[in-house]
């Protein structure tokens, strides 16, 4: 208790003086790091460009209106591709994430010492690398197109789905599993009757959640050549057709909003 006596009065302080000191010290370090980083930013920035940017922005905005609505009709194909990339990619991811999650969960992994670290490494590598980077690699390897996008989304999502799923597996009610074990059930049967029913709602929720994120991510994969509406965006920017760019942005916006709404509805229905 940080309680001191001063002239017979109790003086209350929130922290002891040592804690106080440590607290200040932590703040000092944090501020110093930030100031140092800001300085690095400042060195690398052409402030003239930044000062000029409001004029640039209004100029760009002017050139973006009115949106060229006629362009919309050529976008249906790319939108369809975008949705397919997200959906098929999510499907691949959940199929692969399911076994990985069981290998990574502490209570279902066959070996805590050997198998679990491998599964965790798969999860962390898949999660650390952005789907755009995955797409970049795949476009270099298997060529540009929708397939690269599908695989990129799949690879990126395995880690995400597997991580949330293995956390759900670690939180299951163990007595239900015990009850199934006590009947003399085999390992696969315990999985099927004792564990899977418990994680099924979480599994469905995670898949839909990830699908929603993937719609958003697959709109930009075209920037590196992996198909979908991003290809059109890239082309329109390169040809400085700003009125087309604004149409594409509005389309992306509405796709994202709709997918978010769908995913919220579906998750609500599941839980």
């Amino acid at each position: 208790m940080p309680l001191k006596m001063n002239n017979g009065n109790k003086v209350w302080q929130r922290r002891t003086s040592k804690q106080q000191l440590l607290n200040w010290f932590a703040w000092l370090i944090a501020v110093a790091i930030f100031v140092y980083c800001w300085q690095l930013v400042s060195e690398k920035t052409m402030w003239i460009f930044v000062l000029d940017s409001p004029a640039q922005a209004s100029d760009m905005a002017e050139r973006m209106v009115p949106p060229k609505w006629g362009y919309l009709s050529t976008l249906w194909g790319p939108i369809w591709d975008t949705i397919n990339i997200a959906t098929l990619g999510t499907l691949i991811a959940i199929v692969l994430a399911f076994p990985v999650a069981f290998l990574a969960a502490r209570n279902t992994t066959p070996s805590v010492r050997f198998v679990r670290p491998v599964a965790l490494f798969i999860i962390v590598s898949s999660r650390s690398i952005n789907s755009l980077l995955w797409a970049l690699m795949l476009v270099t390897i298997i060529g540009p197109g929708v397939l690269a996008g599908v695989i990129a989304i799949g690879l990126r999502s395995i880690g995400f789905c597997a991580k949330l799923l293995y956390e759900a597996i670690e939180e299951i009610n163990e007595t239900q599993v015990e009850a199934i074990t006590a009947t003399g059930a085999s390992g696969p049967q315990i999985l099927n009757f004792g564990i899977v029913p418990q994680i099924l709602p979480a599994f469905a929720g995670i898949s839909v959640f990830r699908w929603d994120i993937n719609i958003r991510e697959s709109t930009v994969l075209g920037l590196v050549g992996a198909g979908g509406i991003g290809l059109e965006l890239n082309a329109s920017i390169n040809t400085v057709s700003w009125t087309q760019v604004s149409v594409i942005l509005l389309v992306i916006l509405s796709t994202v909003v709709v997918s978010e709404w769908v995913s919220a509805k579906v998750r609500h229905a599941i839980i």
Binding site: N173, T175, E178, A179, T181, A182, G184, G194, P197
Partner: peptide, 16 residues
Amino acid sequence: RRSMAMIFQEYALVER
């Protein structure tokens, strides 16, 4: 284990 059945506290049914 087939010939020794167990009944649990809190029932331990698989709820779903």
